[in-house]
Design a protein around this nucleic acid. Structure first.
Length: 278
DNA sequence: AGTGTATCCTGCAGGC
DNA sequence: TGCCTGCAGGATACAC
């Protein structure tokens, strides 16, 4: 699920409702989303006051005044849902994994059907170290087409697979990698280092464009993703290629094709994104 | 270095 | 209706 635009949308929704809250108690329903014991995790979080909510790549980062962060990777089906009063009945999340109960009422639920997500409590130093292993933020001020082109030049990997590697660029997942490649007219199988400077410029522009447009739409809901308000994202109708195999390309009417690269589906228009000549 | 395979887990769509 | 298979926005470890 959630890629950069979804994580960013969740962060924006969460920020006004949880900043300033103090964690009174943590309930771990499914310890498999943790990377440590229930008790170790709960002890580190307890009493922390939330000072900020941010994002790094696809991760939601909740800062505590105790010089720690709660780092949430949403995996495929993770949601972060704040409630002023404990939800009951049909309103209650169906797959709660962790609940953070706040002083004075209110609760933040990490809900995750498949439990591929992770919730970790790290010191600021530990988080900094983790963050340094991740690639640049594609929407960052300093991220240039030249940066992208130089980084691509070091790899023979198909560019679609390259874009999914969080050590190369942080936050791009399968949906937006495919969309950006379509907009740039680059075939997903193109070896990264075969991408010319002008193509890298086009890819840089289309990547930033699609990520920003998706944030403005509140993300893409295919099935599970919800905003912090529990709403669906509105970007899905604007996807050009992702999940649209056999449907006509909106530009040239050729049928969109689906192939598999590194065991993950890739979608492209065979006319608008010509296969590079090997 | 890069790929295919398998793994974690649940739910849903499609074929029969 | 039920059963079976395949597939899914992610990330990692493994063998080759």
């Amino acid at each position: 699920m959630p890629e950069l635009p979804e994580a960013e949308t969740i962060v924006q929704g969460l920020r006004p409702t949880i900043v300033g809250r103090v964690v009174r108690r943590t309930e771990v329903v499914h310890a498999d989303v943790l990377r440590e014991s229930r008790s170790a995790f709960a002890a580190k979080v307890r009493g922390g006051r939330i000072s900020a909510v941010g994002r790094r790549g696809k991760n939601v980062v909740v800062s505590l005044d105790s010089d720690r962060v709660i780092a949430v990777n949403l995996g495929m089906t993770g949601r972060l849902l704040p409630f002023a009063t404990p939800p009951t009945g049909a309103h209650a999340p169906q797959h709660p994994a962790v609940r953070f109960r706040f002083e004075g009422g209110g609760v933040l639920v990490f809900d995750d059907t498949r439990r591929f997500g992770t919730v970790e409590c790290l010191t600021n130093a530990e988080w900094e170290e983790r963050s340094e292993r991740m690639g640049p933020e594609p929407l960052g001020r300093g991220y240039s087409a030249g940066d992208l082109h130089r980084a691509l030049g070091r790899s023979r990997s198909p560019v679609r697979s390259w874009l999914l590697d969080q050590r190369r660029v942080a936050g791009v997942g399968n949906i937006y990698a495919n969309e950006a490649l379509f907009l740039a007219g680059v075939h997903p199988r193109t070896p990264a280092r075969a991408i010319a400077a002008d193509e890298a410029t086009a890819l840089h522009r289309s990547l930033r464009r699609v990520l920003r447009a998706a944030i403005r739409a509140g993300g893409t809901t295919l099935r599970d993703y919800r905003t912090a308000e529990g709403l669906e994202g509105q970007y899905a109708p604007r996807l050009f290629v992702y999940g649209r195999d056999d449907q006509p390309c909106s530009r040239c009417r050729s049928p969109i094709r689906r192939i598999v690269l590194s065991n993950r589906a890739a979608f492209f228009c065979p006319e608008c994104q010509p296969e590079p000549v090997a």
